[in-house]
Design a protein around this nucleic acid. Structure first.
Lengths: 112, 112
DNA sequence: TTCTTATTTTACCGATTAGCTAATTAGCCA
DNA sequence: TGGCTAATTAGCTAATCGGTAAAATAAGAA
């Protein structure tokens, strides 16, 4: 699978996004990451594997502990991809603006 | 499933992303969208259903034809979500800059 | 060596997905 | 009505996913 598909797939799960959000604050061990969730450790471990395969998270070892670290580069690739479509939502806002202006104009006109 | 998960899931497929890219150029019918792919029409129809459930695409009918239209609002939500992480990739680039500066400095120093 | 902690691996389950073919719906035209 | 075109639905298979429990691995502590 290509990098972008891997990344989007990894992001398409609320648990994995919550893990990323937690890692945005600071690095953490697998146990620390698992703590807020009502999920068994192997489940978290699997989610972390998906995030690592998408290059969204990296791990370093210190004794038995794995320290997980957010890798923002893959997120930047998502940002770059979606940024190419910005003209489209700007256009639709332009259309909305035009629509609202029309309403406003019509409102004024009706008062005349 | 929440909106963001729906959207990321829809984007985690190269065919669906290609459909969006095509729709970024102009609206198109289902047949027109299917044309570049080596896939049967029902398969494309299913992909479009996923895109519609993620609010990434809308359809209007004209006789038998369905005209598909890119809805950029859902993409903007992705952009907004990922934008919250921008400090992290900026930080890592800062660290890279610092690293490269160090190398450059070391290089100059070694020449003295 | 044995114990304990931290984490992963393996094997399994039920649900979902991407692809197919065949059949069906929907709307146009003759 | 019947035939053509556009698209969807139904039903199938093989693969994948998210979760589990139980076993295995790895490393520090006693």
């Amino acid at each position: 699978m290509d990098q972008l598909s891997l990344t989007f797939h990894a992001l398409a799960d609320p648990t994995r996004r919550a893990i990323l959000m937690r890692l945005a604050e600071s690095d953490a061990t697998v146990n620390e990451l698992a703590e807020p969730f009502d999920l068994r450790l192997p489940t978290i471990s699997k989610h972390l594997k998906v995030l690592q395969e998408a290059s969204l998270v990296s791990q370093t070892r210190e004794a038995q502990r794995r320290h997980c670290h957010l890798e923002a580069k893959a997120l930047k690739e998502v940002a770059d991809w979606v940024w190419n479509y910005r003209t489209h939502w700007e256009e639709s806002f332009d259309r909305l603006d035009a629509f609202l202006s029309d309403i406003a104009a019509a409102g004024k006109a009706s008062k005349n």
